[in-house]
């Protein structure tokens, strides 16, 4: 997957979890919890969706690496390559 495809996948799953987020105004460095207001249940649902779609384990210890869209894209790219 290219970085753009990973980014599109991540944003699609993010918006499925929180439908009120506007894809247009979403910035890569928005913090999912602090800026976008995701709670622990939303975040777990997002991780579950990414796991299902990409087949990655995404252990809890890696959660901080999914804190923003920019971080998550880099993390997922690395995890998919590994």
């Amino acid at each position: 997957m290219t970085l753009d495809e990973i980014r599109a996948t991540f944003i699609a799953d993010l918006i499925a979890v929180a439908p009120d987020i506007d894809a247009e105004s979403l910035r890569d460095n928005d913090h999912l919890q602090d800026d976008l207001g995701l709670d622990s249940m939303d975040f777990l649902n997002l991780v579950s969706a990414l796991h299902k779609r990409l087949g990655l384990p995404i252990p809890e210890a890696d959660y901080p690496r999914l804190a923003t869209t920019a971080k998550a894209v880099a993390y997922l790219d690395q995890a998919l390559a590994g």
Binding site: S40, P57, E60
Partner: peptide, 17 residues
């Protein structure tokens, strides 16, 4: 919770809640 979730896929994990 950490130990329990370590062996689980995301959809099976528990939250502190």
């Amino acid at each position: 919770l950490t130990a329990t979730n370590a062996g689980r896929t995301p959809d099976q994990r528990l939250l502190m809640g």
